[in-house]
Each structure stands twice: as structure tokens, then as C-alpha cells.
Design a protein around this nucleic acid. Structure first.
Lengths: 127, 127
DNA sequence: GAATCCGGTTTCTGAAAGGATACTGGTATA
DNA sequence: TATACCAGTATCCTTTCAGAAACCGGATTC
């Protein structure tokens, strides 16, 4: 039996330690909606309905749930003004802003991916 | 009534067009496992069980399912060698490699996040 | 001869995600 | 007076997600 696995074992440890922080990020940003919400708030503080209007397809229930989780992780700040009727404002925190590079790369890749698909399928004219 | 919404309307369109490519990316990278699998394969081509050993907690079912989706999107290539017993190898494609920056930023943020948590909770010594 | 490895698939679960609809109570709008 | 807006909550329902366990046939290892 030829031992091919000696270097592989070493790689595996390195790979695992690379994996850990990636998974830490994913744990916090999981799901379909958290990153879109953060993007929306990076354009300025907004009210509940404003966010909902901006993110196509999100329901009030999901938005509410996700905002709570983001608040827990201090990526988003919720402020209630006791005007009447009550006004609630959501804003991104400084910590939330630290996700900018991640999001820029995601947008970047998404753009390239879309172009690639268009080339492959031939460019189709949309209505 | 003071019109505060005139610039907001403009922002909303800009925000939505920013959102689109981000959501395109998320659609492809969704879930808990796809990015970890890609990271693992960036360290070199691997067999099914090797990937499973490297990514703690993933089940064969999930790994199988996720690999199929990644293959469909051409991020991963599957090769069968008809040795006996059959050998199957998974490798990242050139296109898959284009995710490197996204992943680097995720790892980066994850590392910072972990440090932040450690500072907040006080540094605790682990067994 | 028995146990293990390989690359999965199948079946059976429970948990979570996501959607539809209705409701609140105070305010402004028509 | 009737309607719509705001910031959600409550309820119900369906669809995915995800894990645990059993299983396959062929091959190697003990």
C-alpha cells in the first residue's frame, strides 16, 4: 500500500481551520433575507413598511423575525419614537457596516453570474 | 404635509437594483453547506468521504444533495473512474474558483466576529 | 469468515422556513 | 362616515431542510 495520505492529513487540518470562521459567518447571516435587509438599511435608516416594500417577496412575519435576530447580533438598531401613532425606525449599526466588503463581493459575483447565464442562454429580450 | 419622500423614491430604485445581484448570489449559495463544500474543494480534489470527514456535522444525504446542486451550477465537477470499486472524485471548477473573494471576505468577517465575541464575554479558557 | 470501506440511496422522522389571511388601535385622508 | 396607513402579531397551512438509521454490492483488510 502506497501512502498517499500523509500530506492530505496535514491539508485537512488546515482546511478545517479555514472552514471555522466561514461557518461562523454563515451562522449569523443564514437564510434568504438577512443580507438583503442589511443591504436595504445600508441605504439609510428605514421604517418597517419601507423595508418590506424594498425587498420583494418578504412577508411581515419573516421581516419581523429576521429583524429581531439581526438586532440580537447587534447588526441592526431598532428605535421607537413615541409620536402617535408610534413610529419605529431601523438603522444599521457600525458593526453592521463591517459587512460591507462581504456584500460588495456577493453583489460582484452575482452580477458576473447573471452575465454568464445571459451569454449561455443567448441574450433574450425581455418585455 | 412636507414632502420627505421625493429623494426616498429615488433611493428605493437604486437600492432595489443593488439588491438584485446580491439575491442572485444567495440563491445559488443558499443553505448551510454549499460554501463549506466549496471551501473544502478549494484545498484540492476530494472523494465523497473525504469531504464528509472534513466538514463536521454534514450527513451523506445532505452532502450528496448539495454536490448535485453545485454540479448543476457548474461550480463543482464530478468524475467517475471505473476502477473497482468505483472511485468518484469531486473537484472545483474554474467558475467555482471565482468565488474566492466572496469566501475570503466571509472568513475575514467570521474571524473578526469571533474576536469580538471573545472580548465581550471576557476571554474564557477552554478545556 | 467477519468487519470495514466506498459512494451513495431510501425511508422515516421532526424542525424550520415561508406564505395567506385576519386582526389590533390610533391617526390621517377622502 | 368609510377607508387606508402603520407596525406589527396570531393563526393556520404547506413546503423545504435536515438528521438518524438502515441498506446496497463489490472490495479490501483482519
Amino acid at each position: 500500500m502506497i501512502n498517499e495520505s500523509a500530506p492530505a492529513i496535514h491539508d485537512m487540518k488546515e482546511c478545517k481551520s479555514h472552514l471555522q470562521p466561514v461557518r461562523d459567518s454563515l451562522d449569523i447571516l443564514n437564510g434568504k433575507w438577512k443580507i438583503p435587509i442589511i443591504v436595504s438599511l445600508m441605504f439609510g435608516k428605514k421604517r418597517f413598511k419601507e423595508i418590506q416594500r424594498e425587498i420583494d417577496g418578504i412577508t411581515a412575519k419573516m421581516l419581523s423575525k429576521e429583524l429581531k435576530e439581526l438586532e440580537l447580533n447587534q447588526l441592526v438598531k431598532r428605535t421607537v419614537y413615541d409620536s402617535s401613532p408610534v413610529t419605529v425606525e431601523y438603522a444599521i449599526t457600525t458593526y453592521g457596516l463591517s459587512l460591507k466588503k462581504v456584500i460588495d463581493e456577493l453583489r460582484n459575483w452575482g452580477t458576473k453570474h447573471r452575465n454568464r447565464l445571459m451569454k449561455k442562454n443567448g441574450i433574450e429580450i425581455e418585455a
